[in-house]
């Protein structure tokens, strides 16, 4: 993961140290745990619209 991150940052022209890559790898593991809890099919719900929009005038009614 750390090597992948290093290549990724380098390709994006971002100078990220090895130490930071190691800490970011840990953060990504935390996100992976949350990501694994998603049911992707349940998210693709065309009945309610596919994704968030900001609140509008009548949203309290």
């Amino acid at each position: 993961m750390q090597d992948l991150l290093k290549s990724y940052f380098s390709a994006r022209d971002l100078n990220v140290s090895e130490e930071d890559c190691s800490k970011i790898a840990q953060q990504m593991e935390g996100l992976d745990v949350l990501r694994k809890g998603l049911d992707v099919r349940y998210l693709n719900d065309s009945d309610i619209g596919m994704y968030h929009r900001p609140l509008r005038r009548h949203d309290n009614e």
């Binding site: 998603l38 998210l43 719900d45 309610i48 596919m50 994704y51 968030h52």
Partner: peptide, 9 residues
């Protein structure tokens, strides 16, 4: 985009 779908839910 999945995050925005969750927000809609």
């Amino acid at each position: 985009l999945q995050a925005q779908q969750i927000r809609r839910k």
